[in-house]
Simulated scan of single mutants.
Amino acid sequence: MNPTTTFLSCDWGTTAFRLRLVERETLNVLAEESSKQGNAATAKAWQQAVQPPEQRVAFYLAIVRQHIQQLEAVAGTALAGVPVVILGMASSTIGMAELPYKALPFAVDGSDLLTQTIAPTADFPHPVLLISGVRSADDVMRGEEVQLVGCGFENTPEEQLFLHPGTHAKHVTVQNGQATTLKTYMTGELFALLSTQSILAASVEAGGTLTAGRHQQWFARGVLEGQQANLLHNAFMVRTNDLFSQNSKSENYFYLSGLLIGSECHELLAHRPARIVLAGEPVLVDLYGAALRVLGIAHKCPVTTKTAEEVTLNGQLAVLKQHLATLPTV
């Protein structure tokens, strides 16, 4: 495999690991491996191994190497020399090397993100580019900054918004080619807790799609009621909806989702950006897109949707190109 025409995209989060062999010119994924061996589990294994601190990077890269070997088997070719671009929690306290956060603002072309290069060795014959996260005075993100770079924001004085739904949704303001403000919303985590571990768990049931039956109607109702009343009170309506047989458990599931997403997006009504780039997993992008339409936001500013894979690979390649001249080679 030609190291100059491909790269290895590594997305290493707290609970999950994903590695892709990617063609640079087309961003086609030639092979892919994933596992639940996230940084939290790897950090625990590292502690149990009781090795010298200077062996930590090699310990983590040995895990990456195992996945690369599986990709080599799938691709039917050796991948020695192909650079590895790593984002996510691998640059955190539980990762292979803790890097400081880049303080806002940062350039949306990825040129000033904080990175660390790791030279190839006999045991790991790949140059590594490890990308750190970003912080504001009171907020942080790791991984989403690379996805923002992959969105291709215009350099314009108008305020644009990067909206990344997920466990911890991110809203990042972009202006004049710089990411300037960051807000995190615990929407996905709160939904998971309420729908599986609270008193509301018995009143909701996952299943179906947003457009099936009355799901869309109850989702829209949740989005709108999330604007008009107290979220802590409205959340209990999920329970009484079920007790009084006002809707089905699956409809309640979408109602709760609408309440939380609507609450998250409330500030956008008063401070509407000129453009929104909504990037993430397709199911979440569909829900957030529907919420923006229900609130009338999508009718007043363009909303562009992109997949998480698309912006991740675009962003990693953009940062890699910034460092090709100084990246160690085999």
Results as ranks from 00 to 15, higher is better:
Ala235Phe: 05
Ala235Gly: 03
Ala235Met: 12
Phe236Asn: 07
Met237Tyr: 01
Met237Asn: 15
Val238Trp: 05
Asn241Cys: 11
Asp242Asn: 10
Asp242Lys: 04
Phe244Pro: 01
Phe244Ala: 14
Ser245Leu: 13
Gln246Trp: 08
Asn247Ile: 04
Asn247Arg: 15
Lys249Trp: 00
Lys249Met: 02
Lys249Ala: 14
Ser250His: 14
Ser250Thr: 15
Glu251Ala: 05
Tyr253Asn: 15
Tyr253His: 15
Tyr255Lys: 15
Tyr255Arg: 13
Tyr255Val: 10
Tyr255Gly: 03
Leu256Glu: 09
Leu256Lys: 05
Gly258Ser: 10
Leu259Lys: 13
Leu259Trp: 08
Leu260Gly: 08
Leu260Phe: 03
Leu260His: 07
Ile261Phe: 08
Ile261Trp: 08
Gly262Ile: 09
Gly262Asp: 01
Gly262Tyr: 07
Ser263Lys: 13
Ser263Trp: 13
Glu264Ile: 03
His266Gln: 14
Glu267Trp: 00
Glu267Ala: 13
Glu267His: 06
Leu268Trp: 04
Leu268Glu: 10
Ala270Leu: 12
Ala270Tyr: 12
Arg272Pro: 05
Arg272Tyr: 11
Arg272Asn: 01
Pro273Tyr: 10
Arg275Ile: 02
Arg275Val: 05
Arg275Glu: 04
Val277Gln: 00
Val277Ser: 02
Val277Asp: 02
Leu278Val: 10
Leu278Asp: 01
Ala279Cys: 06
Ala279Tyr: 05
Gly280Trp: 03
Gly280Leu: 07
Gly280Val: 04
Leu284Glu: 06
Val285Ala: 00
Val285Ser: 07
Val285Gln: 04
Val285Gly: 06
Tyr288Phe: 02
Val294Leu: 13
Val294Gly: 03
Leu295Glu: 09
Gly296Arg: 02
Ala298Tyr: 03
Lys300Asn: 09
Cys301Leu: 08
Cys301His: 12
Cys301Arg: 11
Cys301Ile: 02
Pro302Met: 03
Pro302Asn: 02
Val303Ser: 02
Thr305Gly: 01
